[in-house]
Nucleic acid binder design. Structure first.
Lengths: 224, 224
DNA sequence: ATAGAAATGTATCAACTGATATGAATTTGG
DNA sequence: CCAAATTCATATCAGTTGATACATTTCTAT
């Protein structure tokens, strides 16, 4: 009976006070899971970082696994809220018969928004770490991340690339190029600390972002 | 005193019998650490997979952390043995004043050898997982991997790109391009299972590798 | 073959981890 | 203000993990 309380409470809003705690736990869990993976993060560490006690995790999320899954859903939500605009814009362009040049513009918008999430946003570290670990060894959160974020996003980029190339390459070739274009950003997502060290950059602020995007744009412009 | 036995034995060859066990442990550890990270792998799991008992890990490597570090050194060794040839070849070309076209050829060789390690080699999964996790959250093995593998390899690719572009871009721009070119392979390294699923490929055998390399080559040929 | 070194095996410990039983404190609606 | 639901805190359990003390077996050199 007490094991069902959490689920019930989660669905039916209920009191307002707990929402703050719930969010703090979610944030702390995202950081912890993103840094150390599922097994690398401990519930005690998360609880302490969130400023709550241990049973609160069970109370709000049913347990460690439920918390992990809630993190995945939260990531999907944050991703959606930032990417909806450029994605719908790009989809409209594809349905209309846009020119290769127009497709390149849409592709640049998509990649900029994506790079912004990876490089600039504060929670990026947790975001990328979480997704990457889940992809490296698919777990319970893989399905939701793949279906709602990765697959549609990559497919969209693939179609934009095909359009940018004047429909002269196959769907498969477009998908391969899309995978490589997107994963080339991982150097500044999950691999950011290493890349910054390699470039001798103390931080990734200001013009740094523009320099990286210039390289991405050059790559897109080279699609003929 | 017993804690120093392992180090002594490790340095002075000693008896031959143990080398086989030592190697089995190392292989099992690479798989385990690569799949689950440092905390995700348990010493019992490694010992069982290696067919030895628990204290053997301490006996041969001093403990879990020593084993982890030994894995990093092993990775460096395997990388070196496969990459020495194309790397020295490329270095010689750079010292001679090779043409952009020649630089592109050398670059293709490097990327092919790298992709071969990431995509084809059987132990690739463990390799990429291990390196990636260590880069995501630098631990004790980071230094050796960065200094001996990542930094020199990426710097070489950067110089080749600059040469391929007729010395018309800055060192920094070349480094950024190098980071992105190399990390674009991660889609088929650490992200291989997801990429295969996305492409609808049941496995990554045969012509698959060629298709990916065709995309990489096209990207290199587009450097003008 | 035999002494000593090397390798393996048994048993166990202390710390940590996730989970939860239990109850107190707090908040909400009437 | 009060009863009920919600939120939070204490204490503790059972399982796991890394480590190690200790005994035993196997191997090498002489």
């Amino acid at each position: 009976m007490s094991s069902r309380d959490a689920e019930v409470r989660e669905i039916a809003g209920g009191y307002r006070k707990g929402e703050a705690a719930r969010q703090r736990i979610l944030d702390a869990a995202l950081d912890a899971f993103g840094a150390g993976g599922f097994k690398g993060a401990t519930t005690r560490q998360i609880a302490e970082a969130a400023g709550v006690n241990l049973p609160a995790l069970k109370y709000y999320f049913g347990g460690k696994e439920g918390l992990y899954l809630a993190c995945a859903e939260d990531i999907v939500e944050r991703y959606r809220s930032q990417m909806v605009a450029p994605i719908t814009e790009a989809l409209e362009g594809l349905q209309a018969d846009e020119t290769p040049a127009q497709a390149r513009v849409a592709l640049k918008r998509i990649m900029t928004a994506l790079a912004d999430q990876l490089m600039v946003t504060g929670e990026a570290n947790a975001w990328t770490g979480f997704v990457l670990r889940e992809f490296a060894e698919p777990g319970p959160a893989f399905a939701v991340l793949y279906e709602h974020v990765w697959a549609p996003g990559t497919e969209l980029v693939a179609h934009l690339i095909i359009r940018a190339r004047g429909q002269k390459i196959s769907l498969e070739a477009g998908r391969i190029e899309a995978l490589m274009l997107i994963s080339s950003l991982s150097a500044f997502g999950i691999g950011r600390p290493v890349s910054l060290k390699f470039l001798g950059w103390p931080d990734s602020g200001d013009g740094r972002f523009d320099q990286v995007m210039a390289a991405v744009f050059a790559r897109i412009d080279a699609m003929s």
